[in-house]
Amino acid sequence: MSSVVTRVVARMLLAPILVVAIAILVKGFADVGDGFSAGVVAALGILLQYVTLGREEVERTLPVRLLPHAAFVALLGALAVALVPLSRGDPILTHSPPAGAEVTTVGKLELMTAVAFDAAVFVLVLGAVVGIVHAVARAYEEMEAT
């Protein structure tokens, strides 16, 4: 088990890492970054918790068990973004509002379905990595136990 200092520092780092991840996601359309990178950054933050605090404590204190399930929900969401235009007769994955049209902005973020798609990528990558980490950790514990 890690020393107290590492544990405290890891704990303190989680929030900033998640903030950075969200920033990378949100600013992705204007600046460096995208949903995939944001997902990996967030997953690295969670992985840091696993490494320093141990699986049981992380899963007791953080709602990580939802993440792998969320990954599949996100995949469904991405599919919805892809398929809904078909019902209007547009090609698959036609984003709205369309190119060149006026968009509502929140700060630098422009609200459109492409952003929702990117967010789905974020959740899926985060959920998949956490799911894999959990599976590896559990498998390791089972191996140690026998």
Binding site: G28, F29, A30, D31, V32, G33, D34, H95, A99, V103, E110, M112, A114, D118
Partner: peptide, 8 residues
């Protein structure tokens, strides 16, 4: 496409 970042 409402994006300054071409990669995204």
């Amino acid at each position: 496409a409402h994006a300054d970042n071409v990669v995204t």
